[in-house]
C-alpha cells in the first residue's frame, strides 16, 4: 500500500493536562507507525511533568501535570520530538501466536459472518487466521486489543444490540477490526471464536500480553485442544 501524503500533525488540547497529537483521520498502518514512533520518542524524552502517553490508531495523547508543565511549552517539546521520531528506525514488532477455537459454542456469530460473506462456516476461521494482524491500540477494557484489518470478505458490522455477556477470550469482528475480550463483559462485536490465552493477568510480572504495535497471528484449533490448552493456562 502506498503511504498517504504526509500532512503536518495537529496538536489539540484534550484537557488542561492532556494534548492530543493527530497524525491522520483514518486507520492505516503508515499512520499508526508514525503514532507509535512518536509515542516511543515521547516516553524516552524525559519531559518535565510528563505522566503517560496513550497511542491510538491515528493519534497519541500525552498526559502531563499542569503544575510542572504548561501547554505551550509542552507543545513546543512535542513539535521538536516529531522531527526525530520520523527519522528513527521503527521498533521490530513482537509477533504473538494466538490459538483460536472457531465456531460452535465459542463463536455464536460465525454462521452469520459466513452467510454474509457467502462462505461455509468452516471457511471463516482459516480466512480470519490467514493474515498477520497489527495491534493498532488497546482500549475499551484492560488488555483489549484493536486488531486490523480483517480480509474484506468477512468484515461485518457490529451487532445491532450488544450482548450482555461475552465470554472471556472471545474473538470478535467489528467492521474491518478484530479484537479479543480479555474478560467476560458486555459487548457488541460479532463473536466467531475463543482463545485460551490470557491477555491480562495481575499475577504475571508483565500483566499485559499485547502492546500497541505488536503483531498477532491466529491459529485455528479444535475444541478438544482448546480445553486442553485452557487447563494449561489456569
Amino acid at each position: 500500500m502506498k503511504p498517504p501524503v504526509d500532512v503536518p500533525p495537529r496538536i489539540v488540547p484534550l484537557s488542561e493536562s492532556a494534548l492530543t497529537v493527530e497524525f491522520g483521520e483514518t486507520i492505516a498502518p503508515h499512520t499508526n507507525d508514525l503514532v507509535l514512533a512518536f509515542a516511543a520518542a515521547v516516553e524516552q524524552a524525559d519531559i518535565p511533568g510528563f505522566r503517560e502517553v496513550v497511542p491510538t490508531y491515528r493519534s497519541a495523547t500525552i498526559y502531563f501535570n499542569p503544575l510542572l508543565a504548561d501547554s505551550s511549552t509542552m507543545t513546543e517539546r512535542l513539535r521538536a520530538l516529531m522531527t526525530n521520531a520520523r527519522t528513527a528506525p521503527p521498533r521490530l514488532p513482537v509477533t504473538h501466536t494466538i490459538p483460536v477455537w472457531y465456531g460452535g459454542e465459542a463463536g455464536p456469530d460465525l454462521s452469520v459472518v459466513a452467510a454474509r460473506a457467502g462462505l461455509t462456516p468452516e471457511q471463516v476461521g482459516p480466512l480470519h487466521a490467514s493474515v498477520v494482524y497489527r495491534v493498532y491500540m488497546l482500549g475499551f477494557s484492560p488488555g483489549f486489543p484493536y486488531l486490523g484489518a480483517v480480509p474484506d470478505r468477512i468484515a461485518t458490522p457490529r451487532l445491532p444490540t450488544p450482548r450482555n455477556h461475552v465470554a472471556a477470550g472471545s474473538v470478535g469482528i467489528a467492521g474491518a477490526q478484530t479484537g479479543i475480550y480479555p474478560h467476560a463483559s458486555p459487548g457488541g462485536w460479532r463473536i466467531i471464536g475463543r482463545t485460551p490465552v490470557v491477555l491480562f493477568s495481575l499475577t504475571r510480572s508483565a500483566p499485559f500480553l499485547l502492546a500497541p504495535g505488536d503483531r498477532v497471528q491466529f491459529v485455528p484449533i479444535e475444541e478438544t485442544e482448546f480445553h486442553h490448552l485452557f487447563r494449561d493456562h489456569l
Binding site: L14, S15, A18, T20, E22, E25, T26, I27, V54, T56, Y57, R58, S59, T61, Y63, M137, G139, Y146
Partner: peptide, 11 residues
C-alpha cells in the same frame, strides 16, 4: 463518529 482515540475525564 471518529476513528477511536483517547478520551479523558471531563470529555
Amino acid at each position: 463518529d471518529i476513528v477511536s482515540d483517547a478520551v479523558s475525564v471531563g470529555s
